[in-house]
Design a protein around this nucleic acid. Structure first.
Lengths: 210, 210
DNA sequence: TAGATTGTTAATCGATTAACAATC
DNA sequence: TAGATTGTTAATCGATTAACAATC
């Protein structure tokens, strides 16, 4: 689909650029050079220019980049503010915690329903988001063109939920369970909290300073 | 401290190896070869052997690796089950969600207190973990030799909290806030949920299948 | 114009993969 | 022993960094 595939490492740097540019904009800074950004972000200036030029020429020679302009370009590349519909499967603490986060809405990510197997919470609402029974998951996704399923169930149920989401033609899975999900024709993004903690622990034990 | 520094990418693969080995052990599998692991994990067999050999020779030529043995070696390398003391700063939904997760305790990570600025919740307990006033943070950390501070406060307070944690000689920060933390003499591991969602969104929009 | 900084090509560095001798 | 698979060196690949001509 793209002339040349963008390396994954570059994609993962885009949100970081976006964040820095947002902050610069809030500070009222109008323009910024790759060298300035490199100092602020701890990256190499060449790398920043290389990264940005994979998506097009956003800068001006001898001048730098316009902060707001570049910020909006990156938000565009990431496809923010397009209005994505998301559901949460597993209305436990993590699910409710994600449902409460206001930052997602601001960027066009709307959590529209939650699903759970526990009859005690089915029908309840958290932060204005209703919990439906798991049996309704597939039909609901198909009827409402859900874009993303957020899996916050226990490990044992993750694959089963993912299978339903795939059948219902959901486009992406944001997986908070420790399970490795077997998927086809769907993008899976894993959030492995334990892995992150283990890496922190390793670095602490081994005095691993960058 | 190490003869040769272990690349960060390798460290981040260790939890993945651990997880696969744990599953194999649960299935009653006694031995496994790098080739089998490579198929199961979607990695290259050479890479697996290279990774493991950075830490020592865990295998046997012509035979492979003993599952339990290798699993325990990797858990050792990661420093699990050593009994680390952690606190949560910010007793909001995310904080409580992390406090509820049983998986950490099993690996020796104990959450011993929470801290917050909200007078309505100071003194309360969630999952048996008491919430103390923010003013007590520094003294508590020093008196109780806290290893890890988990920051789940809003962005604006993250740096202030990190500064206190550093003064109190905490060894690691697990940062759930979107703020970039300025740190010295302390290991910071960031969990950037928004970044992860943005990457998922990009991949969905661009049909980015690995 | 002179100075600055991009866009882009070339060089370097590091990580991944291949190959194979060592050895169980 | 013969077969299998590791440990490890060498080759390849890709990402990062340096360099500089283009140009604002």
């Amino acid at each position: 689909m793209n002339e040349r595939r963008i390396p994954e490492v570059v994609i993962r740097r885009l949100p970081k650029y976006l964040r820095r540019l947002q902050e610069l904009e809030e500070e009222g800074v109008l323009r910024v050079s790759s060298l300035q950004l490199s100092h602020q972000m701890g990256l190499n200036a060449s790398q920043i220019r290389q990264d940005l030029n994979l998506f097009g020429g956003f800068g001006q020679q001898g001048y730098g980049y316009l902060v707001t302009n570049l910020k909006e370009s990156i938000a565009d590349i990431l496809g923010l503010e397009q209005g994505k519909k998301m559901i949460i499967i597993g209305a436990g603490n993590m699910g409710i915690s994600l449902a409460s986060y206001k930052g997602f809405i601001k960027k066009g990510f709307n959590i529209v329903k939650m699903f759970d197997v526990n009859p005690n919470i089915i029908g309840k609402s958290y932060r204005g988001i209703e919990v439906l029974a798991m049996e309704k998951l597939k039909d609901y996704c198909m009827e409402n063109a859900i874009d993303v399923g957020i899996i916050t169930t226990p490990k044992e149920h993750a694959q089963g939920v993912a299978d339903i989401l795939m059948e219902a033609k959901v486009k992406g899975i944001w997986n908070f369970s420790p399970a490795d999900i077997n998927a086809k024709d769907i993008i899976v993004e894993d959030v492995r909290l334990s892995d992150s903690l283990y890496v922190l622990n390793y670095k602490m034990n081994n005095n691993y300073i960058d």
